[in-house]
Amino acid sequence: MIIARILGTVVSTQKDERLMGKKLLIVRPVNLDGTDTSAYVVAVDTVGAGFHERVLVVSGSSARLAQGMKDVPVDAAIVGVIDTVDVMND
C-alpha cells in the first residue's frame, strides 16, 4: 500500500453502473518525510476519508477486495485513514 493525501474529488454521472454511489477521490502519494510526489491516482473511497487527510491506498486487483468492491472496475481504493506514521531514524 502507499501513503497518500487527498487532493480533490471527481464527479462522474456517466460511468460504469457498478461505480454508482462510490465516492471518487483524487489522491497524491506522499513521501515518508511528508513531501508530495508529482503522481496522482483516482481512488474509490471505502472508509469515508475526509479532505486533506493522509490515507492508505491499495492498488491493483487487490483494490477489489476492499469493502463493497467485489466486482467493481477499480484498481485503487482508499482502505484506511492514517493517524500516525513512525519511521525509525537510523
Binding site: 472508509v47 469493502q67 485513514v81 493517524d83 500516525t84 506514521v85
Partner: peptide
C-alpha cells in the same frame, strides 16, 4: 517503521 490507522477496512 509502522503506520497506525484506526479508521480502516
Amino acid at each position: 517503521g509502522t503506520v497506525v490507522a484506526t479508521v480502516k477496512n
